[in-house]
Computed example of a mutant assay.
Amino acid sequence: MRWFLTVLGVLFGITVFLFLDYALPSRQTVRITNTYNRLTDIGANAIFYASADAGTVQNAAGQRDVRFIDTVRPNGRPYVYRNEDTGWIWPPYFKYDSSNLHAQATDRKSTSANPEWVSVTSYGWRVSWLSIYPNAISIRSVAGPDVRPFNWPAVLILLVLGVLLFMLWRMWNQFHERSIEPAIRSADEAWDRIDAQADAARDRARGRVSRWWDWVRGR
């Protein structure tokens, strides 16, 4: 049973880590090379795209017109973002300005000969073989490719989550001390009483059997 709880705890920890890694904002310094719209097939990976509640529209073939932002990292590797509204649904970024962000990204396009570096705040993963793209949230210019803006939104969210977890832990400890432990002690005492009564009944039964056997042998 103990190994099962250990495995369950490890799986729960991995799930929480992946959830936070996907939902929390991240910041990357990149150079924008292109912006465009593309008719994209939405299928098994639909969970990684905006929900229909955010105003997205798909045709009968399950295709959606999605904005994309092509970028290049300082190490020369490409990195592609999608640009979709999130609306009031999860994750709660309340993004409604994908059109404005597309215009900002287009205005900041540059070449390797005359680069303009920007910091893109986004959430999500980039998985090429599943056609999964992080969703860009905001763009701002930085001085150069070595600039790494501090990701204070993610730190702030983690601090708030940490405080909430600490409060839940304290509440659970108090509940355990005030309710669970007395119930366990009461159950143990009741079991001890039942056990003692069973022992007494067994001793009385043995006594009766012993007296009866002595009477039989005496005849």
Results as ranks from 00 to 15, higher is better:
Ile157Tyr: 06
Ile32Arg: 02
Arg206Asn: 10
Trp129Leu: 11
Val120Gly: 00
Ala54Tyr: 06
Phe150Asn: 07
Leu39Ile: 11
Gln63Tyr: 07
Tyr36Glu: 13
Ile89Asp: 05
Leu158Phe: 07
Pro25Thr: 04
Glu189Gly: 07
Arg148Phe: 02
Thr86His: 01
Trp117Ile: 06
Trp191Leu: 13
Phe150Arg: 09
Tyr123Trp: 12
Gln104Ser: 13
Pro92Asp: 08
Phe48Val: 04
Arg38Gln: 14
Ile42Pro: 03
Ile184Lys: 15
Tyr81Phe: 15
Val142Ala: 09
Trp152Asp: 11
Asn45Val: 05
Ala198Gly: 03
Arg185Tyr: 06
Leu39Gly: 07
Pro149Lys: 08
Tyr133Met: 03
Asn151Thr: 06
Val7Asn: 08
Leu20Ser: 10
Phe48Cys: 08
Arg38Asn: 05
Glu84Asp: 04
Ala183Pro: 02
Tyr81Asn: 02
Ser110Asp: 04
Thr106Glu: 09
Trp172Ser: 10
Val147Thr: 15
Val216Leu: 15
Trp215Pro: 00
Gly76Tyr: 06
Val216Arg: 12
Arg77Leu: 15
Phe17Trp: 14
Trp90Leu: 11
Gly62Asp: 08
Asp188Val: 13
Asp188Leu: 13
Tyr22Phe: 14
Asp203Ile: 10
Gly62Thr: 08
Arg185Gly: 04
Ser26Pro: 01
Asp107Ile: 01
Val142Trp: 01
Ala50Trp: 01
Ala201Ser: 10
Ala50Cys: 05
Ser186Ile: 03
Arg27Tyr: 02
Thr15Asn: 12
Gly207Ala: 14
Asp65Ala: 11
Pro25His: 01
Val120Pro: 00
Ala113Arg: 08
Pro182Leu: 03
Ser131Ile: 04
Asn83His: 03
Leu24Asn: 03
Ser98Leu: 08
Phe166Ser: 15
Ile69Gln: 00
Tyr96Glu: 11
Thr15Cys: 10
Arg178Phe: 09
Met167Leu: 14
Ala187Asp: 08
Asp192Met: 06
Tyr79Phe: 15
Arg148Met: 09
Phe17Leu: 14
Asp70Ser: 13
Leu101Glu: 01
Pro115Val: 07
Leu11Lys: 11
Ile47Tyr: 06
His102Ala: 10
Leu168Val: 12
Val127Ser: 02
Ala198Asn: 09
Leu161Glu: 10
Asn100Pro: 01
Trp129Tyr: 13
Trp3Ala: 13
Phe150Met: 11
Pro78Tyr: 05
Phe68Met: 05
Arg217Pro: 03
Arg148Asn: 08
Val7Ser: 13
Leu158Ala: 15
Asp97Cys: 06
Ser210His: 11
Val118Pro: 02
Met1Ile: 04
Arg170Val: 12
Ile42Ala: 05
Glu177Gln: 14
Arg77Met: 13
Ser131Asn: 12
Ala61Ile: 07
Ile180Gly: 04
Leu5Gly: 06
Arg219Gly: 11
Tyr81Leu: 15
Leu11Gln: 09
Asn173Val: 08
Ser131Cys: 01
Val155Ala: 15
Arg219Glu: 09
Ile132Glu: 04
Leu101Thr: 00
Val57Ile: 15
Ser119Thr: 12
Ser122Gly: 05
Tyr81Cys: 03
Ser179Pro: 02
Ala154Val: 01
Thr106Cys: 02
Phe150Asp: 11
Asp97Pro: 00
Trp212Ile: 10
Trp213Val: 07
Tyr79Lys: 00
Ser186Ala: 14
Thr33His: 05
Ala201Arg: 09
Leu5Thr: 09
Asp21Phe: 08
Ala205Gly: 08
Ser51His: 04
Pro25Trp: 03
